[in-house]
Nucleic acid binder design. Structure first.
Lengths: 209, 209
DNA sequence: CAGGCCGCTGTGGTCTGACCACTAGATTTC
DNA sequence: GAAATCTAGTGGTCAGACCACAGCGGCCTG
């Protein structure tokens, strides 16, 4: 009956305990963590609970287990674990830069794909939408991301974008003409011009703050 | 034996079985899935294995369990990085293509960045490594991903790669010369040539199968 | 009849102890 | 010294036992 830190689910406690343990002992990727039996012992929980935690972390790619050898820490960097537990990382500057750079790269990738595969009809429909509605820059690229029919890339964009959005850099105002000319290039399958237009847009956005 | 289902870890099989079951029965968010005991029975595995799978999915945010009631499918859509994994479970065929395409795009992005920012020294060090060691294609791009100093992009690559790898098609043999010439172009900051070399490599890899 | 109490039953949550399969290192054997 | 062998430690799996909780229905009481 000790004061359990949290959620009435032991395995989550174990996850948390592991996190602290890893942090406290400053274990690095490749390092071995104690055996299941020892953890079970150390945390005073059943081995099955330890296993549930470990299996979950394994599926997340945070640890790696090798039968007969042990359990090892895998790519670390900001463990996804931390995010899952609600600890967010958007603090330092570098992360910000990485976010916007990554976002930019993905958007360009999407443009490339769209320039290559999207039907003229799809693009025209998008142009009509641009003319008709009022919208946020995100909305525009969401549509681009959807047009590119790679669901995974679309997801990645959504994720990156959602992070990028929280920590907002000022979204400068971009004029409809810019979007339209970008789309026009896409329609003409002129990948390079489209990207160029995109980059100019970026520059404008960060300029007027 | 083309499709190997059993990955030697029962709980992973269960995860897979659950995926198919959900797909087959077209279960939607909010729907209840069979009890642990029934699943254990249906899949002919121990309940603990079922639980390991369920706990992992729970930590991923894909399902939700309520004691005394049951286990339910959750509304994914909004799960940060975890979303990635969601994709992994939900579709199947298309995902493979998306995975390799995305991987390719990211690798090219990394190459671009490296061509632009990496120091000559770093690249030379990589060349030395190529000459000296035996390695897998993944290892090479892992190093490229690390060289590009965008941690986020590196991380996305790792994730995508780890998934792409599981389902992998034979990694054709690429010769060291190819890597070396690629690196040479990077050293000369010749982005286009480097990417061209990269693409040729891809073609070779899928050819000899 | 209404309201509430009670106890089933089914479900997840947890622990224990027992095996198996495998790895690595120590030990023995040649 | 090298090869074969044994052994301890580790993850993988299972079966069975409880517990805690939610939901349902029946029974008692006012």
């Amino acid at each position: 009956m000790a004061g359990r830190t949290s959620s009435s689910k032991i395995y989550l406690d174990v996850v948390e305990s592991l996190r602290s343990m890893i942090e406290a002992d400053s274990l690095l990727p490749g390092d071995k963590i104690p055996s299941e039996r020892e953890l079970s012992d150390r945390f005073n929980v059943g081995r099955s609970s330890v296993r549930e935690a470990l299996r979950a972390l394994e599926l997340l790619g945070l640890i790696e287990t090798r039968r007969g050898e042990g359990t090892f820490i895998r790519d670390f960097q900001e463990h996804k674990l931390v995010e899952l537990l609600g600890t967010f990382f958007l603090q330092d500057k570098k992360v910000q830069e990485d976010l916007s750079e990554t976002k930019r790269l993905i958007e360009i990738d999407c443009l490339r794909i769209v320039a290559f595969f999207a039907t003229a009809e799809d693009i025209k429909r998008l142009m009509a939408w641009v003319k008709a509605d009022e919208f946020h820059d995100d909305d525009f690229f969401l549509r681009i991301a959807i047009l590119n029919r790679n669901r995974l890339l679309e997801r990645i964009w959504r994720i990156v974008n959602s992070y990028a959005r929280t920590s907002e850099m000022v979204q400068g105002n971009v004029k409809k003409e810019d979007y339209l000319s970008l789309l026009t290039y896409l329609l003409e399958r002129d990948e390079e011009k489209a990207i160029e237009t995109y980059l100019i847009r970026i520059r404008n956005m960060s300029k007027d703050e």
